[in-house]
């Protein structure tokens, strides 16, 4: 079914709700980073919240109708050495490990023109629309 609007499944929000009442099953054992998506006349701008990830460990793929962002984020942990080997985790809220996010794309996206940049913990993916008249 052709789409003309981008769509991201709202996984990170519901996940918290579900945890409290319901044993959830995850197939891929991955977490899903939060995204913002902006639409402009010339194309889409997708911003992925991916702080603390080495840019080289982010895999951005585009296929017709689909944008996939995946990678691994290590848990951000201080080195235990300075403290004489003694440390306890008081709180651990930040997702870690394998992440994967799939975003459905409208057909108009020019797959050849997709670019991405990583800046200050945000991964920006620029998805331009095809110039009208082009097939």
């Amino acid at each position: 079914m052709p789409r003309d609007k981008p769509a991201a499944e709202p996984a990170p929000i519901t996940a918290h709700v579900v945890y409290d009442t319901y044993a959830t099953f995850t197939v891929s054992r991955s977490w899903q980073p939060a995204v913002n998506i902006y639409e402009r006349p010339d194309g889409l701008r997708v911003c992925v919240e991916l702080a603390g990830v080495d840019k080289r460990q982010i895999d951005v793929r585009v296929e017709p109708g689909r944008l996939t962002i995946r990678g691994v984020r290590e848990a951000p942990e201080p080195s235990p050495r300075g403290a004489g080997g003694s440390m306890r985790i008081v709180c651990m809220e930040i997702d870690y490990g394998v992440f994967e996010r799939v975003i459905a794309l409208p057909d108009r996206v020019d797959l050849g023109g997709v670019t991405s940049t990583y800046r200050s913990g945000w991964l920006w993916v620029h998805l331009p629309y095809q110039v009208s008249g082009r097939p």
Partner: peptide, 20 residues
């Protein structure tokens, strides 16, 4: 700097999920 996004069309997405 900018990075060219990899573009694949046929390979299933979740194939290498076991890498972790």
């Amino acid at each position: 700097g900018k990075k060219r996004a990899t573009r694949r069309t046929s390979e299933p997405v979740a194939a290498d999920a076991d890498s972790s």
